[in-house]
């Protein structure tokens, strides 16, 4: 079997570069809006500016779990019928899981940095904090499962766990809501936000969404490249090629 090169075409590289430049420009505007343009909030003062980064990233964290679920279902559906499409779905699933983990980490850490000066405590088990903590734990366990299981099984087992996690998220959300309610309500939709604050929120939302989309695509391509290496190694192994017994340092035999 011919393994085609995984280097993207010149056009794709150009597009990615332009996309990165545009993202950086939007992020710069967002930073200026958040720090210099938006007025200080009446009761919280300057600390409120954390929200301009916290809200976009924490809201974006709720999107990639769906991508992860779609990828996992796609993998389970195609794995016996169309191996190439199944591998693509799996690459999408792991990329989305890692983005989820990163965005929830950002949401938790920036939320804690906001809570310390405003509430006087780093952490409290209120509704949304607990939900995000559990979301974070679910995707940590998903990624750990992929690392701990051996090559052939990892994809299927991880896909099964991903479906469990996706079903678990709404149940967790409701149960925590019944348990605790202290978090300031949804900031954007409640109408409490002054209109002078909105540009800072939306510029940053757009910027980080564009950047997350870029990292998601890049991580997907990396996983595809790792899958190609795994296939090439397996084939070299079958043909008794000595090169397979000396993999380069730092490169796992297969992507996890």
């Amino acid at each position: 079997m011919q393994t085609s090169s995984s280097t993207p075409s010149k056009n794709t590289q150009l597009f990615a570069g332009l996309w990165l430049l545009a993202t950086l420009a939007v992020l710069a505007v967002g930073y200026r809006q958040a720090i210099f343009v938006a007025p200080a909030e009446a009761t919280m003062g300057d600390v409120f500016r954390i929200f301009f980064y916290h809200v976009p990233n924490a809201s974006l964290a709720l999107v990639p779990p769906y991508i992860n679920l779609l990828g996992s279902i796609g993998y389970l559906y195609w794995r016996g019928k169309n191996p190439d499409r199944a591998a693509k779905s799996d690459a999408l699933a792991i990329a989305a899981a890692e983005i989820t983990l990163m965005l929830t980490t950002i949401g938790l850490v920036t939320g804690m940095l906001w809570a310390r000066p405003i509430w006087g405590i780093w952490w409290t088990f209120d509704e949304r904090l607990t939900t995000y903590l559990l979301l974070w734990l679910l995707y940590v366990s998903y990624i750990l499962l992929r690392r701990l299981s051996s090559s052939g099984q990892a994809y299927t087992l991880a896909a099964v766990v991903s479906i469990f996690a996706a079903v678990d998220v709404p149940i967790t959300f409701m149960s925590i809501r019944w348990w605790r309610t202290q978090h300031p309500g949804p900031v954007l939709t409640s109408g409490k936000v002054d209109h002078s604050m909105l540009p800072a929120v939306f510029w940053n939302l757009a910027g980080w969404a564009m950047f997350s989309l870029l990292t998601l695509s890049f991580r997907y391509l990396l996983e595809r490249r790792r899958q190609r290496i795994a296939v090439a190694q397996a084939e070299a192994f079958l043909t008794d090629d000595p090169a397979v017994f000396a993999p380069a340092a730092g490169v796992p035999l297969r992507g996890y």
């Binding site: 290496i229 090439a232 090169a243 490169v251």
Partner: peptide, 14 residues
């Protein structure tokens, strides 16, 4: 990405 790229080229060579 770069590491995986090196490994990919090495395997192609072999």
């Amino acid at each position: 990405w770069r590491r995986a790229g090196r490994e990919e080229r090495r395997l192609k060579l072999s």
